[in-house]
Write a protein that binds this DNA or RNA. Structure first.
Lengths: 107, 107
DNA sequence: CATCTGTATCGATGACTGTCAACATAGACG
DNA sequence: CGTCTATGTTGACAGTCATCGATACAGATG
């Protein structure tokens, strides 16, 4: 369920299409939770730009399944990607997704 | 219930504080609905940068109370402002709020 | 004042979401 | 194979949200 590109031009320039609004809203919904925002920020701030789940469960007051759930939401929104390497699963941020949002919000 | 500034530095640089994450999540939640995104975009695209509610109810398939509700959410998130002028109520986008978000998402 | 139009609020309802405990799966290592 | 650790999935539950119809409020106009 990868989110659409949520395209290009600043949304204050011309009215968003219905489809763009819908896919964009999906991405913003993924960003609308404090835990997910901190996860995203934490992953991006890690050295090498990636972190394993074991690094991500400690800083939060929620259970490991909840972290796993939030990581899945971020992944399905196209904001992060992850893969298993041996014992651990690593996640990293997809910078293009963030910068596209930045462009869209630009005034 | 004006949202906090949701400050300054790109969130991929250093981990968000718990408080910043919470207030930021509130703003993104306001953006996480297709109708609200289109409202925001529509208001900003209007000539003069403002629109009265009567301009905003037509383009949507939802009732007038629902539009009113969404406008309130956007206003409480600090994304738009509005005032009554005689018969009609006009709303406009607060550009700083959007550009701050843009900065925060920058990579 | 009476009425009409534009906008906001209220109360209800169905859908969605964040969270957890319990369980399942995957790889490592003996 | 058996077991241990790391991570994901499932099912349930409480809280939140988008939406509507009904109603209230505000200003204009007769």
């Amino acid at each position: 369920m990868l989110q659409a590109p949520a395209c290009c031009a600043p949304m204050v320039r011309e009215p968003l299409s219905d489809q763009d609004a819908k896919s964009l809203a999906g991405v913003f919904k993924a960003l609308s939770d404090p835990v997910r925002l901190r996860l995203l920020s934490l992953i991006a701030s890690f050295e090498g730009g990636e972190a394993c789940v074991c690094d991500l469960t400690g800083p939060f007051d929620v259970s490991q399944p909840t972290i796993s759930h939030h990581l899945r939401v971020l992944r399905e929104a196209g904001l992060i990607e992850g893969e298993r390497r041996g014992t651990w699963v690593y996640y990293w941020v997809l910078p293009d997704a963030l910068s596209r949002l930045g462009t869209l919000l630009a005034t």
